[in-house]
Design a protein around this nucleic acid. Structure first.
Lengths: 260, 260
DNA sequence: TAGAACTGTGTACAACATAAACCAAGCGCT
DNA sequence: AGCGCTTGGTTTATGTTGTACACAGTTCTA
């Protein structure tokens, strides 16, 4: 395959992401628009996953030739990046939220919600720093949530990296468990059975004492088969954990300050 | 491409991961071994990234034809999964560690260390539940670390999912920032400049008040260009955050118990 | 000793990203 | 008014990919 991407042009990427480009005056009118191309890609990914998105496929869907897309997008890699950027729309922060913790919880949940609706976004490799409008807007939102804590810019950024790292990582793990069927073409139950067989066959008390005990106690129910709501209680549990950690950090940094 | 993976066989996958299979008596002796194939794949990925791993490439490296590999591995997807499993070796937990927090910190750092040494492992899509020996050993280790807390099996599993989710997510974000050059073929500085230009051009005080303020305060130094040590202070910071959260949870669950 | 099981090979195919050459379209200058 | 430059979409072509399939050689078993 030729996916190597020998060279990338950050400026061009930036132009595309922020949709700034002197609209050309000379040639014939474009029949398509970047927007259409990206949206078509998103539609395909929504329906069949990111693996189904090929240049050919997108072009066919639009009724044009494969190569015509390259007038709008430098490479498939860029197309995927643009798809992620456009798919990650950021709603405004609900004004009724007051404390940083509520805001940050909403922020994390909303980010997770993106991954829930567009699971394919997790399959797009993260090649460049996030610098599209939506990504930046999301960052701004997170920062504004933390603003009242009085932390430094660096500290706030660190916290956001931690939090979005958690959201992304957890979403990925959850997806791996929940989407086996779609990803492997083999029914869920077959995997569950295999997992169970693995636990009973290879996990013995000598090598895996703790695990063996939990398995014996049936502590694995509900983990081999994840809950239907995908990012459910588990995510919330971890989120509160992280928020607690942030809380403790914030408290420690300004030991005796009035909340206002 | 034919990467579709129409059907997967969990039992076969399990056999391969755990290296159990009745060694055949009939035919000619195999010239290769699964181990060799996987190790060759790992070597290539170590040197040039996972994108450089192709069946052809692995076979060439071994001096055999492409198709010969399919006698050892059902598909490329399985090969990648096996590579991850083998690359994620789990050292024994240092015996001098006593409390759950120290153990868990070591556990998270060791997991991160894997991702540091084998960044390509983050690029392998997570298609199936982790059920290889090393993955299971790592789980056992995490559980044993938490054993003393007296939490239930479900709670401990939840905590581990949270923690490994954090590690994975953070590592991915950090890699995206640190490896731009290798991934895009464009020098680091070009991206940094583009990022800076993005911040100054598109981030105005109206749409991004908090961000704009931080940029004005130079609070972005050290973030556009990540520290050389990759998962550095930032990771540690977030890790302690998560550990704090866990700590608070543990404390809350057994309010007045002696630490021993 | 015949056949079954198993090995590695050679050939073949469809799908992929994308480079290069091409022609038609349309504005901007002289 | 018209020439030319810029731009848009198509055509053609190239190299790479994963893997299905048929085959010929090897080794044990019945």
């Amino acid at each position: 395959m030729g996916t190597d991407q020998r060279q990338a042009d950050p400026n061009r990427t930036l132009e595309l992401l922020w949709d700034v480009q002197a609209p050309p005056t000379r040639g014939p009118k474009p029949a398509l628009s970047l927007r259409q191309v990206v949206d078509t890609g998103i539609a395909i990914a929504d329906a069949e996953g990111v693996a189904a998105v090929s240049m050919r496929r997108v072009a066919d869907e639009l009724g044009y030739t494969t190569m015509s897309l390259y007038r709008y997008v430098p490479s498939k890699t860029d197309l995927l990046d643009l798809m992620v950027e456009h798919a990650a729309e950021v709603p405004d922060l609900p004004p009724e939220l007051t404390g940083w913790r509520d805001k940050l919880r909403w922020w994390a949940n909303d980010t997770a919600e993106i991954y829930r609706r567009r699971r394919w976004a997790l399959d797009v490799p993260l090649n460049t720093p996030p610098m599209g409008p939506n990504q930046v807007k999301r960052m701004e939102q997170g920062l504004s949530a933390l603003d009242e804590t009085g932390l430094s810019g660096g500290e706030m950024l660190g916290i956001l990296v931690v939090l979005s790292g958690y959201v992304r990582g957890h979403a990925q793990l959850a997806t791996a468990l929940a989407d086996v069927e779609q990803r492997t073409g083999t029914p869920q139950e077959a995997w569950d059975q295999a997992y169970g067989r693995m636990l009973t066959t290879f996990v013995n008390a000598d090598d895996h004492p703790t695990l063996a005990r939990i398995v014996a106690e049936d502590g694995f129910e509900g983990y081999a088969e994840p809950d239907d709501e995908w990012l459910g209680d588990d995510f919330t549990f971890g989120l509160e954990l992280v928020l607690d950690g942030i809380d403790r950090y914030v408290e420690r940094r300004r030991p005796a300050m009035s909340p206002e």
